[in-house]
Amino acid sequence: MEVRTIKVFTTVDNINLHTQVVDMSMTYGQQFGPTYLDGADVTKIKPHNSHEGKTFYVLPNDDTLRVEAFEYYHTTDPSFLGRYMSALNHTKKWKYPQVNGLTSIKWADNNCYLATALLTLQQIELKFNPPALQDAYYRARAGEAANFCALILAYCNKTVGELGDVRETMSYLFQHANLDSCKRVLNVVCKTCGQQQTTLKGVEAVMYMGTLSYEQFKKGVQIPCTCGKQATKYLVQQESPFVMMSAPPAQYELKHGTFTCASEYTGNYQCGHYKHITSKETLYCIDGALLTKSSEYKGPITDVFYKENSYTTTIK
């Protein structure tokens, strides 16, 4: 009895394709271990004539594949690729409408935090270190965002349907971005203890939790000093293409032309909904596939993004 075979390709990165001759009487799992086709788990399936010449994702289970996976995804987590594939199996079914010149995501599976993050990423200057993220990001900007969303979920250790947080998501993504040249110098002034300067680099240099107003941050924000008295913390120097200011959701007025974009969060910790506000020729609110415009805006804002380049204080 002759062994019926077909020729397929296996890959971990969709760049390096490895030619395989597979036995049609055995499952993919018996031949390769966990195997995925377009995100779908085909591990328990036997090869079919229609699979001839198709590319299958496999887990990096030998040295060659491990090197290829690390170079593309910059992670050695053995569960990463499987999590990416199972997320992709959902995100490829989502709709990605162009809204006001940006790629958004039609609401499904509690994905409003991903839509808000995706919209924000198209408006701030950011370059990702893992080629996987950078490639998928370019495709997302062009309207094909399924891979990018699935990668975000995998890097953030999230599953489809789980509630997510924009600030946490951005923080994970910033860790995989090139923020080497970003720098922030802060000064804390206390009447009792004097003053202390701190220099922050990388992710810490672009994120701040405690106030939404970048102007206020430049002037000074009140913080408790270690001595128990009130101290003032203010920005001395900022070198970065953008800054992200966050605070627990509270009524906040966004003035046209003073910011790049913002995240609105309605609801409580267990259950809520994100919308995205962007400042173009007027203010726009993007909620999944829905767009509304207004000249002014007041609502429960939790993150505001500002364009920056270089700032030095005039406070002496």
Results as ranks from 00 to 15, higher is better:
residue 2 E to V: 11
residue 3 V to F: 14
residue 5 T to K: 13
residue 6 I to T: 12
residue 6 I to D: 04
residue 6 I to G: 09
residue 6 I to E: 07
residue 7 K to Q: 11
residue 7 K to S: 13
residue 12 V to G: 07
residue 16 N to A: 13
residue 16 N to W: 10
residue 17 L to F: 14
residue 18 H to Q: 10
residue 19 T to L: 12
residue 21 V to T: 13
residue 22 V to A: 13
residue 23 D to G: 12
residue 23 D to A: 11
residue 27 T to M: 12
residue 27 T to C: 13
residue 32 F to D: 13
residue 36 Y to M: 05
residue 38 D to H: 13
residue 39 G to V: 05
residue 40 A to C: 10
residue 40 A to Q: 14
residue 41 D to G: 07
residue 42 V to C: 14
residue 44 K to S: 14
residue 46 K to Y: 13
residue 49 N to K: 11
residue 49 N to A: 12
residue 49 N to H: 12
residue 49 N to S: 13
residue 51 H to T: 04
residue 52 E to I: 12
residue 53 G to Y: 12
residue 54 K to H: 13
residue 54 K to R: 14
residue 56 F to R: 06
residue 58 V to A: 06
residue 58 V to W: 09
residue 58 V to D: 08
residue 61 N to V: 09
residue 67 V to G: 12
residue 71 E to C: 11
residue 74 H to G: 15
residue 76 T to P: 10
residue 76 T to S: 14
residue 77 D to I: 02
residue 77 D to Y: 02
residue 78 P to L: 08
residue 80 F to K: 01
residue 82 G to F: 15
residue 85 M to A: 07
residue 86 S to A: 14
residue 87 A to W: 03
residue 89 N to I: 14
residue 92 K to E: 07
residue 94 W to S: 02
residue 96 Y to M: 05
residue 97 P to Y: 05
residue 98 Q to M: 15
residue 99 V to W: 11
residue 102 L to Y: 10
residue 106 K to S: 15
residue 106 K to N: 08
residue 107 W to G: 02
residue 108 A to Y: 08
residue 110 N to Q: 02
residue 111 N to D: 09
residue 115 A to Y: 08
residue 115 A to R: 00
residue 115 A to Q: 01
residue 116 T to Y: 00
residue 119 L to G: 10
residue 120 T to P: 01
residue 121 L to I: 07
residue 122 Q to T: 04
residue 125 E to P: 11
residue 129 N to H: 11
residue 130 P to Q: 05
residue 132 A to W: 03
residue 133 L to I: 02
residue 135 D to V: 03
residue 138 Y to T: 14
residue 138 Y to C: 14
residue 143 G to D: 03
residue 143 G to Q: 11
residue 143 G to F: 05
residue 145 A to C: 08
residue 145 A to W: 03
residue 147 N to H: 14
residue 150 A to T: 03
residue 150 A to P: 03
residue 152 I to P: 00
residue 155 Y to A: 07
residue 156 C to N: 00
residue 157 N to I: 00
residue 160 V to G: 02
residue 161 G to H: 05
residue 162 E to R: 01
residue 162 E to S: 02
residue 167 R to D: 00
residue 167 R to I: 02
residue 169 T to P: 03
residue 170 M to I: 05
residue 175 Q to R: 11
residue 177 A to L: 06
residue 179 L to H: 03
residue 179 L to P: 15
residue 181 S to C: 12
residue 184 R to Y: 04
residue 185 V to C: 04
residue 185 V to P: 05
residue 188 V to L: 04
residue 190 C to P: 03
residue 193 C to G: 03
residue 195 Q to E: 15
residue 196 Q to S: 14
residue 197 Q to M: 12
residue 199 T to N: 08
residue 199 T to I: 09
residue 202 G to R: 05
residue 203 V to I: 13
residue 204 E to Q: 12
residue 205 A to V: 03
residue 205 A to E: 07
residue 206 V to C: 02
residue 206 V to F: 00
residue 209 M to F: 15
residue 210 G to H: 04
residue 216 Q to K: 11
residue 217 F to W: 01
residue 217 F to H: 00
residue 218 K to C: 02
residue 220 G to R: 02
residue 221 V to L: 14
residue 223 I to Q: 09
residue 223 I to M: 06
residue 225 C to Y: 03
residue 226 T to K: 15
residue 226 T to D: 13
residue 226 T to A: 15
residue 229 K to Q: 11
residue 230 Q to Y: 13
residue 231 A to T: 07
residue 233 K to P: 05
residue 235 L to P: 01
residue 235 L to G: 03
residue 238 Q to S: 05
residue 240 S to G: 03
residue 241 P to W: 03
residue 241 P to G: 00
residue 242 F to K: 01
residue 242 F to V: 03
residue 244 M to D: 00
residue 246 S to L: 06
residue 247 A to L: 00
residue 249 P to C: 04
residue 249 P to L: 01
residue 252 Y to A: 04
residue 256 H to D: 04
residue 257 G to Y: 01
residue 257 G to F: 00
residue 258 T to S: 09
residue 258 T to A: 09
residue 259 F to H: 06
residue 259 F to A: 03
residue 259 F to M: 00
residue 260 T to H: 01
residue 260 T to P: 03
residue 261 C to V: 04
residue 261 C to D: 03
residue 261 C to K: 07
residue 262 A to K: 03
residue 263 S to Y: 03
residue 265 Y to Q: 06
residue 265 Y to I: 02
residue 267 G to P: 01
residue 267 G to F: 04
residue 269 Y to R: 10
residue 270 Q to W: 08
residue 273 H to T: 07
residue 273 H to Q: 05
residue 276 H to D: 00
residue 278 T to K: 02
residue 279 S to P: 06
residue 280 K to V: 07
residue 281 E to V: 00
residue 283 L to F: 02
residue 285 C to Y: 00
residue 286 I to S: 00
residue 289 A to Q: 08
residue 289 A to R: 02
residue 290 L to K: 13
residue 293 K to N: 10
residue 295 S to D: 15
residue 299 G to M: 04
residue 302 T to C: 01
residue 303 D to F: 03
residue 303 D to T: 02
residue 304 V to I: 10
residue 304 V to H: 01
residue 305 F to K: 04
residue 307 K to C: 10
residue 311 Y to M: 08
residue 312 T to V: 13
residue 313 T to Y: 15
residue 315 I to R: 15
residue 316 K to G: 15
